[in-house]
């Protein structure tokens, strides 16, 4: 464990908690893509299948449980909570995310570290996490609505990406057999898609700031 990865895990967790708190506090999820949140929940459920079989550390197990619970809590809130689900942009959040799930699963069957149940699902979760932000990106391009995508959420999500890349660079130079190409390449794709999301987020934020200028 190095400082970059620890900080990356913590900023990743904070980004999820910030979003959950924002939705719960404002009882609104307008501008949030339910499909992206569903994909994130699937990512954690598929990746942490080893939760009960491989014990790595207390930290690792506790964080896995927290990631699963918080991501499922967001999906539950957006699908079940009466007040919240009324504010969901159902007609705008129409990206066919099932295609992303299918494509990532087929790709994981082709490219993985070992052809075992857990390894294929692990690779699937890595690929899916990379593309999971696409429905949110599409929704943001359509709606330009950043009401619930707070700056903190976007900041912590970006910090998580940047810190994980620093973590991989650090591990590459300090560990003899560092070969996590699946995670690294997929992580770079994820960061590129995040950068695209950030670009549209910044544009929307700027436009909204202009719109809200004092009359």
């Amino acid at each position: 464990m190095n400082a970059f990865r620890l900080a990356g895990d913590i900023t990743h967790l904070i980004s999820i908690l910030v979003l959950l708190l924002k939705i719960y506090a404002t009882k609104s999820c307008s501008g949030i893509s339910l499909k992206t949140q569903e994909l994130y929940a699937v990512v954690f459920l598929a990746r942490y299948l080893d939760l009960f079989t491989d014990f790595i550390s207390v930290y690792n197990s506790v964080m896995k449980v927290v990631f699963i619970l918080s991501s499922v809590a967001i999906v539950w809130c957006m699908r079940r909570h009466r007040a919240v689900k009324r504010s969901y942009d159902k007609e705008l959040d129409t990206f066919r995310h099932y295609y992303l799930v299918g494509a990532c699963f087929v790709f994981a069957l082709l490219v993985h570290e070992k052809f075992t149940f857990q390894e294929v699902f692990w690779a699937f979760s890595i690929y899916l996490e990379a593309v999971a932000i696409i429905p949110q990106l599409v929704l943001l391009q359509r709606s330009g609505n950043v009401d619930n995508l707070t700056g903190q959420y976007v900041f912590f999500l970006g910090a998580y990406r940047a810190l994980y890349i620093l973590n991989w660079i650090y591990r590459y130079f300090t560990e003899a057999k560092f070969s996590r190409w699946i995670a690294c390449i997929s992580g770079l794709v994820q960061t590129a898609l995040y950068a695209d999301f950030f670009y549209y987020y910044f544009l929307s934020w700027k436009n909204n700031a202009k719109l809200n200028l004092p009359a």
């Binding site: 080893d50 570290e113 075992t116």
Partner: peptide, 10 residues
């Protein structure tokens, strides 16, 4: 035996 790539990262 070889546990394969132990995924220690979250």
């Amino acid at each position: 035996g070889d546990r394969g790539q132990d995924h220690d990262e979250l």
